[in-house]
Amino acid sequence: MLIGKEPGGPIVLSERRYGSFQRTFRMPDGGDAEKIAANFSKGVLSVTLPKTQEAQQNERKIQIKSA
């Protein structure tokens, strides 16, 4: 399983299994549940959950200082 987030990019979860299986996960707060979309193509499930207007207003950039 690989979970990572590129700056400004999507969160990526990758896993490989044989046979049937079930995966459940919680959606993050601040998402608009009415606009959720999922697509399954070539063995890849993509789930899109847009942020609500309220969650977008709470975004901010944090400057990282290095030594």
Rank of each mutant, 00 (worst) to 15 (best):
M1W: 03
M1Q: 05
L2G: 01
L2V: 06
L2H: 13
L2M: 08
I3G: 06
I3T: 06
I3S: 04
I3K: 10
G4K: 07
G4A: 02
K5Q: 05
K5P: 01
E6Q: 14
E6M: 11
E6C: 08
P7G: 00
P7T: 02
P7D: 00
G8P: 13
P10F: 01
P10H: 03
I11D: 04
I11E: 08
V12C: 04
V12S: 08
L13S: 06
L13H: 14
S14Y: 12
R16M: 10
R16Q: 13
R16L: 11
R16A: 12
R16E: 09
Y18A: 09
G19W: 09
G19H: 06
G19M: 04
S20G: 12
Q22C: 03
R23F: 12
R23M: 15
F25R: 02
R26K: 02
R26P: 08
M27Y: 15
M27S: 12
P28W: 15
P28I: 11
D29F: 11
G30R: 12
G30H: 05
G31W: 15
G31I: 15
D32M: 05
D32R: 06
E34A: 14
K35A: 10
K35M: 11
K35G: 04
K35V: 03
I36Y: 13
I36A: 10
A37N: 14
A38V: 10
A38E: 15
N39Q: 11
F40S: 06
F40A: 07
S41Y: 14
K42I: 00
K42V: 00
G43N: 04
V44W: 10
V44Y: 08
V44G: 02
V44C: 08
L45Q: 15
L45P: 09
L45S: 14
S46P: 07
V47R: 11
T48P: 07
T48L: 10
T48D: 10
T48W: 09
L49P: 00
L49M: 09
P50N: 07
P50T: 09
P50C: 06
K51F: 14
T52Y: 13
T52D: 08
Q53E: 01
E54M: 09
E54Y: 00
A55H: 03
A55R: 09
A55K: 08
Q56H: 00
Q56G: 00
Q57M: 11
N58P: 00
E59W: 02
E59P: 00
R60Y: 02
R60Q: 09
R60T: 01
K61A: 06
I62M: 14
I62Q: 15
I62E: 15
I62S: 15
Q63M: 12
Q63R: 13
K65H: 07
K65C: 07
S66Y: 05
S66T: 03
A67K: 02
A67C: 07
A67V: 05
A67P: 10
